[in-house]
Design a protein around this nucleic acid. Structure first.
Lengths: 107, 107
DNA sequence: TGATTATATGAAATTTTTATCATATATAAA
DNA sequence: TTTATATATGATAAAAATTTCATATAATCA
């Protein structure tokens, strides 16, 4: 049985999901907009949005046949904190040697 | 090529490595102490400590044939921020439905 | 010096996570 | 009321991460 911290990181530290949170930091967006901006495949995006919603990291409202997603404030702040840390440690992360640098990047 | 955010989460959001950071938040410890406290297998612990060192999330000093590890201050703060968020969202994380709760937990 | 304790290394095996695929539903417009 | 658009669901395939295994090194002590 995984504990709350494990579940938290599974939700938050996932590449696509964190990218979505970073986008929503700027403005509310519907799924289609996020899809276009990040290039995430439709079904993956839908899975990811549901996860973020269930965890209450984001909320949603309806507008016609679209659904508009918004990041909550606490989560936005944490995204910012992480952003700072990444910036400060970027150099070391890149030459860690244990972490692998393959794959396509986050935004 | 994975970017800095991806590398950051690989280092920081890993179960064993985050548990190590949580322990070091309380006091400096040598590998043996961490091993006993967290029950991480020796070679895994060594891999994890090297990763955290290379990323500069922790530092090390020698004491006889032991090595004493210490968390840096910025990283300690981020660990605390994450802790708060986990606490606030724990209920939702546990009933997310997409995140899986198997496996053994973090401390 | 040789033995012992503490920690490190690298490759292979296992497990877990993430993406893909086929398909479903919900709302609105024609 | 049929069609098109927007988004959701669940099972499996593919990719990546973590653990295990065999072994190495480094410092101290007898």
């Amino acid at each position: 049985m995984k504990n709350a911290t494990g579940l938290f990181f599974d939700a938050f530290a996932n590449r696509n999901r964190f990218n979505i949170l970073m986008q929503l930091r700027n403005r509310d967006m519907c799924a289609g907009d996020i899809q276009q901006t990040l290039g995430i495949e439709q079904t993956n995006l839908s899975h990811d949005l549901k996860c973020l919603l269930n965890c209450k990291f984001i909320s949603v409202r309806k507008d016609g046949r679209k659904r508009i997603y918004r990041i909550n404030n606490e989560t936005k702040n944490l995204v910012d904190e992480v952003g700072k840390h990444v910036k400060n440690y970027e150099t070391y992360l890149k030459k860690c040697g244990i972490l692998k640098e393959e794959k396509n990047g986050r935004v």
